[in-house]
Nucleic acid binder design. Structure first.
Lengths: 339, 339
DNA sequence: CTGAAAGCGCTTACAG
DNA sequence: CTGAAAGCGCTTACAG
């Protein structure tokens, strides 16, 4: 590579000052139309590359947003990210992705990097065990945070997620309405707000239906397809086997259906299965999976919107917004259960 | 937020110079052990945040690597990313992710951002239609590139991917060995090196087996689960329906299996199905999916390693390294076909 | 409408 | 072992 092209290279080649060049490249009306065009042309010709860190050092704005979630490969997040991305694209913001795998250390190192780069904001699905003070640290250092999918007690920032207790209630109500009297719940952990709320919704619905909860019905843990598959053996070991299963997520449910098939049981015929999230795959799975649509794209769009509004100086909210979920009935829970 | 804490804040509070503080925080042996500790303690106490853009402006190193692929949600990339990440973590490098969705504009905007931030290197699975000149532009501006999964004619940079023609040949040979004489191939496009190579491997294997290829056997296009599912109707419309299907990827194969089941056909019994990639799900799918293990983790690890080596001054290679794939035989192609 | 000058917060020779 | 000074490439008042 030859010499680095900078503002002064352009300025010198045109006999102008760097101030004028800088303004022109940012389309300032302070610079005459003709001059502006000459400058832009010259920048192209010389192969000028804007030095964002110099600019950012001067202005203390970076034009960068961070997005950090625990599992980028989970279609649930995929759908959130897609809508975050669409919203940010629409508003012409660059963003940077991070996958923290629910490891607090990874999340911290990413937040640190964002701080060091002077990122303008952060959209975060917090790792298990994230203390409110981590959020405060970011906020105190001029990094506004918006939470998605999970929220944190006392964080003092706004967040968007589905109404998990209500949504899981819809699923269980539906099964009870179909005649089921023994319903297991597979997956999720009490370490996240999502896990706690979905389990609470499950238990509340059983109670509403006059069904007494039994400890053995609750298979905690699984949060992905593979662990859902593995959990089937624990389920099959339940003494009086439940006739229906609600799962923590679609991914878990799809794994569970694979596992049931492996064991010679037909999901949707021998046993009802319901997922959560309504990911794209739910509709094409065979049998098609009954599930709870969780408003991913609304979560993503609104979270991005809220952050951008705040960056533009609108007042910050501290609210957690709950998106209302919706039951999607498909084959996997279609058949009424004979009592 | 109060006043921003910077090197000079620490220096002033301790009656030292910023030079000493800067050296101490980076563990330079030029600074006395005791002084170093005092400085670090003070930095912690004051809540000092390193300003990476100032440092980077001065040194023109940023300590950041970019990783950009077309589909972050595809487990195939998930596995590559995991091993890239492990390798980078091991060598304590920060990296930034991007999903270009095979849109050249998105990829360019990310590469631009990397250039503007002065990123140290880039690992890229190039979007369809990426011209070699895009790679040259990055390289000329001091952004070393390593390609993964796909390669580009004339890019002049090193790349890592599976030996797709060979791998697809293994799959087709296996089917022929099981007695199949009519084999369809679903998915993939001639616009990527992967698509071209896998199709070439398929055709070569048919020829080796003395089977004449028929146009209608080739269902081009699908590259994800949903489009695999949708392609089943095209497959079922083939006049003399093939007895086996090789798919462009596991995702496509899993969608195809859903679609076949929907149509009342039993994959692995009525029809053989083979995928490509050996993603985690292949082994738990029911029936378990025969597939070609594509060495994702080796691709990721070696690509990251090659880039880091190059950053440390080792000579750049221009080679494309082909990882040798391996056939994994499972239920979905288990049964011999009666001739 | 354009230019000269200061400063963002670091690091790096160079002195001592 | 520590300090004074210059400079990375921008942008922003301030003049003119």
């Amino acid at each position: 590579m030859a010499q680095k092209v900078k503002l002064s290279t352009i300025a010198d080649s045109l006999g102008l000052s760097t101030a004028t060049v800088s303004l022109a490249l940012r389309d300032s009306s302070l610079v005459a139309e003709v001059t502006r065009e000459r400058i832009k042309q010259s920048a192209r010709d010389l192969g000028y590359i804007y030095n964002r860190r110099a600019a950012s050092l001067r202005t203390s704005k970076s034009g960068i947003l961070g997005v950090c979630v625990h599992d980028i490969m989970n279609p649930f997040f995929g759908e959130i990210l897609k809508s975050v991305e669409d919203e940010l694209d629409r508003r012409r913001q660059t963003f940077i992705l991070c996958n923290h795998h629910d490891e607090l250390a990874k999340q911290r190192s990413f937040v640190d990097t964002m701080l060091q780069l002077g990122a303008d904001g952060l959209i975060l699905s917090p790792a298990i065990g994230t203390p409110a003070s981590d959020i405060h640290l970011a906020e105190e250092n001029d990094l506004p945070v918006t939470l998605i999918a999970r929220t944190i007690e006392g964080s003092g920032v706004c967040g968007f997620r589905g109404d998990d207790a209500y949504g899981m209630g819809l699923a269980v109500d539906h099964l009870i309405g179909r005649g089921h009297r023994s319903i297991a719940m597979i997956g999720g952990t009490a370490m996240t707000s999502t896990g706690r709320d979905r389990e609470a919704g499950y238990r509340a619905a059983l109670k509403r239906g006059g069904i007494e909860f039994r400890d053995e019905w609750r298979v905690e843990g699984p949060r992905d397809r593979h662990s859902g598959f593995d959990a089937v053996s624990a389920f099959l070991a339940i003494e009086k086997r439940p006739t229906a299963i609600v799962c923590f997520s679609d991914l878990v449910a799809l794994g569970v259906m694979y596992g049931l098939s492996r064991a010679g049981l037909r999901p949707g015929v021998d046993i009802a299965v319901i997922g959560y999230d309504d990911i794209d795959e739910a509709a094409i799975a065979t049998p098609a999976l009954t599930t709870v649509a969780n408003g991913q794209s609304e979560v993503g769009r609104r979270a991005a919107g809220a952050l951008l509004d705040r960056l533009q100086g609108l007042p910050a909210s501290e609210e957690t917004i709950l998106i209302t979920p919706e039951l999607k009935i498909r084959q996997s829970s279609e058949f009424a259960w004979p009592n």
